[in-house]
């Protein structure tokens, strides 16, 4: 059977696709996201320590702001190409931030499958706020 049709059938049969199944799936996604971000940060961290471990720490007592290349996704991706350790760590951070956002997207899918229009709208509002925060140029 076509997978989309199968999903639709499942949606009609509430006993098969219920809140619990989706929640367990969401739980697994969260765990994978956390493990992945931790692993990426660890790899970047080991590289960082191998290259810079014997240097004295940068001056963290004053704030330097956003001059560094790893403060934007394009910057992080560019740094990954050169194998830069700090950018690999920041990729781990980016995965970590993306995990709860992915959870919202998965909840949206589950509300669509349940045909719960009210909560599809509510979830879209929450996603909209997060997207505004990401792309709205709010960093000032």
């Amino acid at each position: 059977m076509h997978p989309v049709k199968k999903l639709k059938m499942k949606a009609n049969n509430k006993a098969i696709i219920n809140d619990r199944n989706i929640e367990v799936f969401i739980g697994q996604t969260l765990r994978i996201g956390v493990i992945l971000s931790c692993a990426v940060a660890l790899i970047g961290g080991i590289m960082y320590l191998l290259h810079h471990g014997m240097q004295t720490i940068p001056d963290y007592t004053t704030f330097h702001g956003e001059d560094a290349s790893y403060t934007s996704l394009p910057g992080i991706i560019k740094g990954l190409g050169t194998g830069s350790a700090t950018e690999i760590i920041q990729l781990g951070v980016a995965i970590l931030i993306a995990t709860p956002i992915l959870r919202i997207v998965l909840s949206l899918v589950s509300f669509i499958l349940e045909k719960d229009k009210l909560y599809v709208v509510i979830t879209l509002i929450v996603l909209g706020v997060i997207m505004t925060s990401m792309f709205g140029g709010l960093k000032v």
């Binding site: 970047g44 963290y60 560094a68 950018e87 760590i89 920041q90």
Partner: peptide, 10 residues
């Protein structure tokens, strides 16, 4: 804004 520093975050 650069608040998240990799050396501290890791």
């Amino acid at each position: 804004r650069g608040y998240i520093d990799p050396g501290i975050a890791m």
